[in-house]
């Protein structure tokens, strides 16, 4: 009998990403309803010892493969190990983060296991005993609920920040199951890795994002937004207009052809709110817009708006927030 709801642990440099806890919290509820166990799969180098943390967030069991060869993510190594584990244990479902690596390994494993995969999901629920996933499609202009009725495991990648992580239960332990794991032939040979050095959080994980668009007028003016971001501990983003103008690199782009983000607070400065931008941020919980054009589309989705010159408003807002947070 296929058993177990699996969560693929998203870790980087030995640090478990918050999305993993979100997946464990949601997976816990599903596992309880189905009367199955919740397992985490933990791959990496020097990751043994992280099982406790996963237990605190609800994992009953953690399959750990700790290996030199897993130091950096590679498609083949991670696919081979995850697929082998799944073949051996036949879980009911595998949940992964919708990150670059999560998406990558999910597609390979799903095909190798001959099963279905729903990506970029924003919700998950049990309906009549069937796992149903909610996914925004057409840049968030439509929502589809989908399921994988027969093939197992059901696989899904879930957007970070959309599911709530429950509070950890201190001392709740998971059974650690160390596994040898065979990485197989790794055909992707890593020659170099360039980490983005930033003291700010990553866009897709940030709770708060301060974003700038055409209204910023030039690359030097992003400093204004960075100052505001630093007060809030926020990430900095940019609209396509700002990226196309060469003011910020593509890695900062929020939108349909950039990153999809779901922060708690999204502050859009000098962004008109083209549909392509909204596609990437409209699932934010609270949206603030500062724009001098009262007709700007962004005000249609903003919870709070200020019609005014961002060059006046943003520094003042920074000072006000500084006072509040002091």
């Amino acid at each position: 009998m296929a058993k177990g709801i699996w969560v693929f642990t998203e870790q980087r440099d030995g640090e478990i990403k918050k999305v993993t806890y979100e997946l464990l919290s949601a997976g816990r509820k599903v596992a309880d309803s189905l009367g199955e166990e919740l397992c985490a799969v933990l791959l990496g180098k020097g990751v043994s010892g992280l099982e406790g943390k996963l237990g605190e967030y609800g994992a009953d069991k953690v399959y750990t493969v700790d290996s030199e060869a897993l130091e950096n993510y590679t498609t083949d190594a991670y696919t081979n190990i995850l697929a082998d584990l799944a073949k051996e244990h036949q879980p009911t479902a595998i949940l992964l983060a919708c990150s670059a690596s999560g998406r990558d390994v999910a597609a390979q494993v799903a095909q190798r296991l001959g099963t279905g995969l729903m990506t970029d999901c924003t919700d998950m629920a049990l309906e009549d005993g069937q796992l149903v996933f909610t996914r925004p499609v057409y840049a968030g202009k439509a929502i589809v609920k989908a399921a994988c009725p027969e093939a197992r495991p059901v696989m899904a990648t879930i957007r970070p920040n959309v599911l709530a992580a429950d509070a950890p239960q201190a001392g709740r332990a998971a059974q650690a199951v160390p596994v040898g794991g065979n990485t197989g032939d790794i055909r992707q040979v890593i020659k170099d890795i360039v980490k983005q050095i930033s003291t700010r959080p990553e866009l897709t994980e940030a709770d708060i994002i301060v974003s700038g668009g055409r209204g910023i007028k030039g690359p030097e003016n992003f400093a204004l937004l960075e100052e505001l971001a630093d007060v809030l501990g926020a990430a900095v983003g940019a609209s396509r207009a700002a990226v196309d103008a060469g003011w910020k690199s593509h890695s900062f782009q929020v939108g349909q052809t950039g990153k999809t983000v779901s922060p708690v607070l999204y502050i859009a400065c000098g962004i008109s709110g083209a549909i392509q931008h909204l596609a990437g941020m409209s699932s934010s919980k609270c949206i603030v817009a500062v724009n001098k054009d009262p007709e700007a589309n962004i005000f249609k989705v903003a919870d709070y708006g200020i019609v005014g010159d961002l060059f006046d408003v943003v520094p003042l807002l920074k000072e006000e927030l500084k006072k509040l947070l002091a």
């Binding site: 279905g116 925004p136 968030g140 929502i143 589809v144 989908a146 409209s282 709070y304 010159d309 006046d312």
Partner: peptide
Amino acid sequence: PKVKALSYSLPAARAAGKLVPGEPA
């Protein structure tokens, strides 16, 4: 296909929020 779409819907329009009036400060 392995995956079946059960239903499609359109997202609820985000209610327009409030404009905060006044001088910038």
